[in-house]
Every structure is written in structure tokens, then in C-alpha cells.
Simulated assay, not measured.
Amino acid sequence: MAEIVQFQIRIAVAPELADALRSGGDYEGRDLLEAVLRERNAALKCQFDAFADYVEEAGRVGQDPYPLYPLYQWTKDTIGDPEKKAKYLKSFTVYVRGEQVYDQEAADWLHARLSALAGKLGIESVSRFDTNPANNPQPPARQ
């Protein structure tokens, strides 16, 4: 039985918008962006914050429950690298109903609406990903 492919939308934003989204601060156009997201019960999560949360959780519970230890090490190294930190502080994953991957219909709708805002409101780009391993980089190999 084939696995159902799910999707994820990510946006890259201007540093000023990223700061406002992370802090809840004011930024012109943020209300419009958040209104679009609310139409699909969606919210944004900063990728840097998600990476930091993962590393913090792994440190708290120990690495044994994390079978992809190389992924943990890559993530830890990434958040410690100033250039990568700057990149991921501007990158946001769209969560729908609290889930980081969702059906194609939701992804298509979000991609279309957010792409229409690209170049405006501080949104620099909109990307679409799926869960098909053939379309995505795999975790680093164990060393």
C-alpha cells in the first residue's frame, strides 16, 4: 500500500517581518498575512525556533529516543552557525491545524494565496515541499 503524500508550505520573509512574527510586534501587512493563514486554521513557526526546540528537547530527554542522531547533530550545528542562523530566522513553516504536513488541497490553497503576496508585505518567497522521500534530501548518514 502506497503512503499518502502530504505537503508543507514555507515562506522566507524580510528580517523586519521575521522579527515581528517571532515577537508579536507591529509590522505593516502582518495583519493581512495572518488573516490569510486564519482562513485555513494555519499558523507560522520560525524554522530556527523549531530547530532550537528540537535540540532543546533532545538535550532534555537524552539522544537515545532520537534514532536519527546525525539529524540531531546537523540541527545543533546549524543553529550554532551564524550564517545559517540568519537564514533560518527568516524562514517560516506553515502549520495547518497544528500539523507541519497536510493534504494537497490545503497546500495548494495556501501556496496560491501566499504566492500572491510574495514581493509584498515582506514575503520574499514561497516554497512547497512534499513528504515523498524521492523529492527530499535524506538525513545525514550515521558516522
Rank of each mutant, 00 (worst) to 15 (best):
E124W: 11
W109D: 08
K120F: 14
K90V: 13
R97N: 14
A112E: 06
V126D: 05
K85P: 13
S125N: 09
E105A: 09
A86P: 01
V96H: 12
V94L: 02
H111K: 15
A112S: 07
P82I: 02
G80H: 00
I123E: 00
S91Q: 04
A107H: 05
D81Y: 00
Y95F: 15
G119Q: 03
K84N: 04
S115A: 09
V94N: 01
D81F: 00
L117A: 11
A107E: 07
T93M: 06
Q104S: 13
V96S: 08
P82F: 02
A116E: 04
K84T: 02
Q104M: 11
G80Y: 00
D108A: 09
A86I: 01
K85M: 07
D81G: 04
G122E: 00
K90T: 11
E99Y: 10
L114T: 13
R113L: 13
G80C: 01
H111W: 13
W109C: 15
K84F: 01
W109E: 11
L121V: 02
D81V: 01
D103A: 12
E124I: 15
G122A: 00
A86G: 01
E124C: 06
V96M: 11
A112D: 10
S91F: 03
P82C: 02
Y102G: 05
Q100T: 14
D103E: 13
E105C: 12
K120H: 05
L89P: 11
V94E: 02
G98Y: 11
S127R: 11
